[in-house]
Write a protein that binds this DNA or RNA. Structure first.
Lengths: 223, 223
DNA sequence: GCGACCCTGGACAGTCTTGTCCAGAAAAAT
DNA sequence: ATTTTTCTGGACAAGACTGTCCAGGGTCGC
């Protein structure tokens, strides 16, 4: 199935009344609602009837577009894979004057929801705990992302061993933090990013980068 | 409901054949199997029929001990609360000659499965994502544990602000790491603990503590 | 031995889910 | 305007799960 650049095209049909008696839904509509449900209720919440109700159509419409619920779940997985890994790889490869800035670039992915959909990522991660195939895809994604972070540290002069150790901590710590869905006050988030820089860049952090980190942490995205 | 010290008393009845035609099960049996299922399959997997099958008895036995499935889930929550918070508090309060050792003590909880059942903790955490009441209890537990870690840093001379920042990173990082269920090689785990010590104790780590950390990380528990 | 209480098995109703089938409406092609 | 293609609604079957009910078997105190 051809993978587009994931245009989020929720039905722009706010009035519940069908346009002309016949409601048209596309496979993307089913997929979008399915994704919402995956995030908010887990894979068990992705039910054909529930999606249909939210779209305002009957279940049989679903079976016109998808062979079965299983096929929908596979499409959902493809969709996730296309969305969430590329931004991390991109940001790890961005030019940075020193390791402090590089860590800031990495961190940026996790602050800006447009770059990385953390809710989606952890909905899939949760799903993977009950499904071996999903688990394999998560593992592959983690390996790919981790390799990018490791390469980032290596480009800034760390040995292969140290780069991997630091990459593991940085990446999994960030993911884990998101996974917990901690309600974190802004001040705490700033302190946390400073902690990353102090603890894991391995050198005295660049003061300018620390200043930028504060700005990132506060959600302002273009310093 | 009186809370015992949670003696794990799985039915020691390996042969499936009932002892004398009449199988005896206790409420603890139902609870133990329910806990197993919560961990391995999530709250959706905690089904009366499934537990009964594993115990080798019919569902109606369940309704003798528990008013409903809902009541079982509440008992499960009480059980988790009694099990998993105390060890962390205890280990944070253990005497330590310096902050490096204190961090090691904390870390020890997460390495020894008898001290802290990480699988259970994150099964409950996952459950909390779909249930506001559970979420409140998780939040309360996190706050309690975090306060203990913060106090630990404060006892070793950190200011209130710094102690809290470091405690947040240390505790949530460790929890988050577990939450991801990363398959981590032993070498990586050792490197990670060293990273904690280097990054978050805030002082040049005690070499003896680092050595002890390696031992902890390798699962040997009594240096 | 005997009665009282503890506990179990199986049947039943009710709800929710997936997946199939088919008549027929709406839109597109001719 | 008519035919063809595309899509939808509702009915149906089958399976999983919860909760209720009740007859009756086991076990323990006396």
């Amino acid at each position: 199935m051809a993978r587009r650049a994931a245009p989020v095209l929720h039905r722009d049909n706010p009035d519940k009344e069908p346009l002309s008696g016949h409601v048209k839904v596309t496979p993307e509509d089913w997929l979008n609602v399915a994704r919402d449900l995956l995030v908010s209720e887990g894979v068990a919440g992705v039910k054909v009837l529930a999606i249909g109700e939210r779209l305002g159509v009957s279940r049989s419409s679903f079976y016109w577009y998808f062979k079965s619920r299983k096929h929908l779940l596979e499409a959902l997985l493809d969709d996730w894979e296309a969305r969430n890994t590329a931004p991390i790889l991109d940001h790890c490869e961005m030019p940075a004057t020193n390791i402090s800035w590089a860590v800031c670039n990495f961190f940026r992915c996790f602050v800006d929801p447009d770059l990385f959909d953390a809710s989606l990522d952890f909905a899939v991660r949760e799903w993977s705990r009950r499904d071996g195939k999903v688990r394999n895809r998560i593992d592959a994604a983690d390996a790919q992302r981790l390799a990018a972070v490791t390469a980032m540290f290596e480009r800034h002069g760390f040995s292969a061993y140290e780069a991997e150790a630091r990459a593991r901590i940085l990446y999994f710590m960030q993911c884990g933090y998101h996974a917990l869905e901690v309600r974190e006050p802004m001040q705490a988030r700033t302190a946390r990013l400073e902690g990353y820089l102090l603890g894991f860049t391995g050198v005295e952090p660049d003061p300018e980068a620390v200043a930028a980190a504060r700005i990132f942490a506060e959600g302002k995205m273009d310093p």
